[in-house]
Amino acid sequence: MTEKIALVGTPCEMLTAAKLQHYTQSPIEYKIGLFCMENFSYSYLSNLMSQYDVDYDDIKKFRIEKGFGFLTLNDDSQIKIPISDLQDVVRKNCNICVDLTSEKADISIGSIGSADGYSTVIIRNEKLDEIIQKAIDDGYFEVKLLSEKQEKILKRLSSNKKKRNLENIEEKESRSKPVLYMRDVEMSHILDENMVSNFVDLKANVIDNASCVHCGGCEYMCPYDLIKIDDTKPFTTKKCPDDCHACFIICPRTYTPDKLKFDNKKAIGEYTSIMSLKSLKDYPTQDGGVITTLLEYLMENEYVDKTVIVDKKEDQPWKPYAKLTDDINDVIAASGTKYSVCPVFKPLKELKEEGK
């Protein structure tokens, strides 16, 4: 029997996961999306830290709010970095992302709009709506309604990101290749393009066009194990067969099928309910501990068997890597935002290979 997986990730990773569910028999049962304004290059961020005489080893917590990045060091001292400095290390692909709230997830979670210690939760899946209510009744969460003012703040920030990056897309298309995932074309055209495109086209339109999100979906989908991605851009170890189109189809920056297209008139996408939650579990987490507690509830009650989480490498502080686990202790240890990306679908590739 196929294992049921919960995947935690950024908006672009949620789009990859949604495309996997749309086009394939995916092991992903629930998509748990993060609020994300942008991500940072790990190497460039490391260089920026050195300008502030900070080593990654010294950082205990990293948060972005109110126009600053706040670094809490191991000695509990704090360093404040202006968001303008952080903008210089933002990954280029983030400038064409129109999604702040993980609109293609089943549930989206972030701190924007909620009081300290709480998380804003947007539920987009009726079954998860029921699960969250059960978890509240079972004493896992404390719930508050978002005020009209709090909801307006969230929608305003999301709309601003859409507006800003739609302008970036227009400017980018005026000087280089089209940004395919936002192209408003008929599904018949998408299918035709998918059937004549392979890694060569992916490289030309996405990877070499500064649009790759480093999710690892292409590596996961490659049936010939020719695509590799780690600390590099995706590359092939040898020529792809002309009749294989899997990597191009699944990439979140190639054509988006009709069912998954963004409605940019809706600030935070489609949803069934929105609320503010706080975990009633005593976890040493930030932003209410909601994701950690939700994953515990999903695994304890066998809604999922395992979850893909992003942890930090022991030998490279704050260097993210994805892992698949059924151990809540792993989930607790990995809690907290990393602000850099890694190939989150790599553990699913390993799971797929184990099942061969």
Rank of each mutant, 00 (worst) to 15 (best):
M1S: 14
T2H: 12
I5V: 15
T10Q: 04
P11H: 05
L15I: 08
T16A: 09
T24Y: 14
P27S: 12
F35L: 07
Y42V: 13
M49N: 12
M49D: 12
M49C: 11
D53S: 15
D53Y: 15
D57H: 14
F62P: 05
E65G: 14
F68N: 15
D75V: 13
I81Y: 12
S84C: 09
D85R: 00
Q87V: 02
Q87T: 05
N93Y: 10
N95D: 14
I96T: 15
I107H: 14
G113L: 03
D116Y: 02
I122P: 07
I123C: 06
R124S: 01
L128A: 00
E130D: 04
I132N: 05
Q133T: 07
D138K: 04
G139W: 11
S147I: 15
E148D: 15
R156I: 06
R156M: 12
N160V: 02
K163P: 09
E171L: 08
S176W: 09
S176P: 09
K177G: 07
K177I: 14
V179N: 00
Y181T: 13
V185L: 14
E186C: 08
E186G: 06
S188H: 06
S188F: 09
E193Q: 07
M195L: 04
V200Y: 05
V200L: 01
V206H: 03
H214F: 10
I227C: 03
I227G: 01
K228M: 08
D230G: 13
P234V: 08
K239N: 11
P241R: 07
D242H: 11
C251V: 03
R253Q: 08
T254Q: 03
Y255Q: 02
D258M: 11
I268D: 02
K281F: 12
V290P: 06
L295D: 10
E300I: 14
V304A: 06
V310D: 06
K313F: 03
D315T: 06
K323N: 05
T325V: 07
D326C: 05
D327P: 02
I328W: 00
A334I: 09
A334N: 05
G336F: 07
G336T: 09
S340Y: 01
V341F: 02
P343I: 04
V344D: 05
K346R: 08
K349N: 03
L351N: 01
E353L: 14
E354W: 09
G355W: 11
K356L: 07
